[in-house]
Simulated assay, not measured.
Amino acid sequence: MAVDFASAVSAYKSAAGMFAQSATAGAPALPDENPGQGASFTGLVRDALQSTIQAGKESETLTRQAIEGKADLREVVMAVNNAETTLQTVIAVRDKVVSAYETILRMPI
C-alpha cells in the first residue's frame, strides 16, 4: 500500500493537533509544592512535558516549511529526531515512575 507524502503530513498534522488540544485543554495549572526550596517534582515534570510539546511544535513547523520549500531537509530530520528522542525520554521516565509506584504498593506495612 503506497502512501503519498501529502496524506502522511495531513495525518501527522491531525494527530498532533489532537495531542496539543488534549495537552492544553484539560490540564490545570499545578502549584509548586515547595516554592521556596528550589525545583519541586511537579515543576520538573511540568518543565519536561512543556519541552516535549515545544520540540513537537518545532518539528511540525520545520516540516511545514519543508513542504513549502523554505527549510532544509536536514534541519527537518534533526527536529523530528529531537522530538522523537524527547518523547521516548518522557515515556521512559513515566515507565520508571509507574514501576516505582507499583513497588511501593507491594511493600508490606
Rank of each mutant, 00 (worst) to 15 (best):
S22M: 15
S14A: 07
A23P: 00
Y12N: 02
T24S: 13
K13F: 06
A20V: 15
P28G: 09
A16T: 00
F19M: 15
S22K: 15
Q37V: 04
D32V: 05
D32G: 10
F19E: 14
E33Y: 08
G26H: 08
A20C: 07
G26R: 09
K13H: 09
P28L: 11
A27R: 11
G36F: 10
A27F: 04
A15N: 08
A8L: 13
S10I: 02
A15K: 10
Q37W: 09
A27E: 06
S14Y: 00
A29P: 04
Q21N: 04
G26K: 04
A15D: 10
P28F: 08
A23I: 02
A29T: 13
Q37Y: 06
L30S: 13
G36W: 06
F19P: 05
L30Q: 13
G36A: 09
G26C: 06
Y12W: 06
G26T: 10
G26S: 09
A29I: 11
E33C: 05
E33G: 07
E33Q: 09
F19C: 14
G36N: 10
N34Q: 12
G17V: 04
S22Y: 15
S10M: 08
A29H: 11
P35M: 03
A20I: 13
Q37I: 02
T24G: 10
D32K: 07
P35G: 03
T24C: 06
A27G: 03
A11L: 02
V9E: 04
A8N: 05
A27Y: 08
A11V: 00
G26A: 11
A27D: 04
N34H: 14
D32R: 06
A15F: 08
K13A: 14
S22G: 13
T24V: 08
D32Y: 00
A11G: 02
N34A: 10
A29G: 09
N34V: 08
A15S: 13
M18K: 14
N34I: 07
P35C: 02
Y12D: 00
S14M: 04
D32L: 06
Q21M: 03
Q37C: 07
F19H: 15
A16G: 02
A11H: 01
A8Y: 06
M18R: 12
Q37G: 07
L30H: 08
S14C: 01
